[in-house]
């Protein structure tokens, strides 16, 4: 076992997940490739979405990969940080919107 849970070198080994289950891995990687190809959204927009999601799920592999990918697709530093703020706003908002539930409960059980 590694001495740490995350090793940057493991990112390059992502494809090796097929070793234990090739059929599902193939389906996943085919789907993955299709998702990120140019469509109604540009591949740059998709990369920025992926960067934002990477921060929301706090996946270091994904942050590493989609920082490089966003740069390769021409995104600016400002666009990338705005994407991270979108992630932060949704995560923060998700906590805060539950404040309404708390308020409802407070109002119900207090005079």
């Amino acid at each position: 076992m590694n001495s740490t849970y995350y090793d940057p070198a493991d990112l390059k080994k992502f494809g090796e997940i097929e070793e234990f289950q090739p059929d599902l891995a193939k389906k996943f990687f085919d789907y993955y490739g299709d998702v990120f190809s140019e469509g109604e959204l540009t591949s740059r927009e998709k990369s920025l979405i992926a960067l934002a999601v990477s921060h929301a799920i706090q996946c270091p592999y994904c942050i590493d990969a989609y920082t490089s990918d966003s740069l390769e697709k021409g995104a600016s530093e400002g666009q990338m940080m705005e994407a991270v703020h979108v992630s932060a706003a949704i995560r923060g908002g998700a906590s805060l919107v539950h404040g309404v539930q708390m308020m409802n409960k407070v109002k119900k059980i207090t005079m």
Partner: peptide
Amino acid sequence: VYNPSGAFLPGDQLALEKEF
């Protein structure tokens, strides 16, 4: 000419052209 300004590869030429 677009040369990446760092240690990364260029992205898709047509997509970058459109953005530029």
